[in-house]
Amino acid sequence: MRQCTPLDITPYINNRGITQANIDHHLGFISVGGCSFPLEEVPIETGLICEEIPFLFSRTDEGDNIELEGQTLSFAQVLAGQVHILGVSTNGNFFDRVQFFREGKLVRVSRLALTNFIEREPFFPQNRVALQFTHVNTRVGPKDTFKPILWHTSLDLEGEFSIDTICFEDNPSMHIFAITIESGGND
């Protein structure tokens, strides 16, 4: 039976990528130029269902996403066949290695590829549109010259494995807003 487990990424949040115009738009830092997504267009409270996969967002004083700097995410052991991620790259289209562990042992290595949030089409074919915004917040206020996209991607672990840890590489141009682990998808 298909089971989806959204991860709580709150302890790992280290970047602000969602802001409100005229309130904290100047604090957005998803790109070093100071861009961010408009809060009113992100279903922070209810979460988002994308291709029947439920995602949970987090928002703390530190921000709302994980800027990758080699973090190790630990959680209760869960069966995983697919790992679904909502995220973006900034200032380029990036891919990097992701490692999955159980009790300290490497179980699987995969590649996370995320398209730049300013692109109109997915640079990586496995990326799909999760949310497209009507504008982007910048340090000087909202701009609608481009409509940024939050991308949805799925890492296929090629089999089902119990995992309790995910290790990302040090690549601060990649940002993750939500992670959901799926098992039983092929039942």
Binding site: V32, N91, F94, N171, S173
Partner: peptide
């Protein structure tokens, strides 16, 4: 990718 990641790290540091 590695060149680009290095450049963005430098920009971030700046």
């Amino acid at each position: 990718q590695c060149w680009r990641a290095a450049s963005n790290m430098l920009l971030r540091a700046k």
